[in-house]
Amino acid sequence: MTLASGDLGSLGMAVMNQPHRPSEAFAPHLRVRGLTIRRGERLLFEDLAFEVRAGGVLLVRGPNGVGKSTLLMALAGIVRPDAGTIEGVERTRLHLLNYRSGLKPRLTVAENLKFWRAMHGATGLDEDAALEVVGIDGLGGLEAGYLSSGQLRRLALARLLVSKRPVWLLDEPSAALDAEGEALLGRLIDAHRASGGIAIVATHHDLMLADAAGVETLMLGGGA
């Protein structure tokens, strides 16, 4: 750590990166300013501004149809905003999790995970370890089409673990999860924060997080 602050900064980074971290610096800082998004004639939100630092969680709340998913899609670079800037989140340094989980029923659980690990970078856990963390180890050889929707959601969560990325954009992540699954989700987000990651979560449920510090809420729509 002392090396990192000295002149040999790059060497220090290399030493720090040894245990689990990816080669790039893992200190996300998300800044959104003046964000305006329209859907056709309808204005979803205007001049939205927020900031999330490393280890922070932002809960996005609001009634249905207010634009929570669209906001996440904008942060993910899929939807282009009409005005405003989004800084600190790159295409290859984020995970998006929504109801369309990108899993193929005809591939086995392990094959699905292996594929996304190859596409998003083998920077995290290996497939077996990730399946164990989300509690569906032993199902690796099974075609994903056999899984229940709760198990599929756990598999989708495992996808976040096989590639380590600093920004998690989670859209209703607890959908289809039972109480045990929600606790698991809380633990995963806790671990992600502890390693310096940030999470932006659009949800109607309360997250089961260990530590409420650093958790902020963004109300969209009339409720603010």
């Binding site: 670079g77 290859t92 995970h95 998006l96 369309r100 989980s101 990108g102 899993l103 596409m119």
Partner: peptide, 16 residues
């Protein structure tokens, strides 16, 4: 098929 199950969106966050 990739569009319907969301793969296409996730592929846009790949290193490719």
């Amino acid at each position: 098929a990739d569009d319907e199950d969301g793969s296409l969106t996730l592929l846009r966050h790949s290193s490719l």
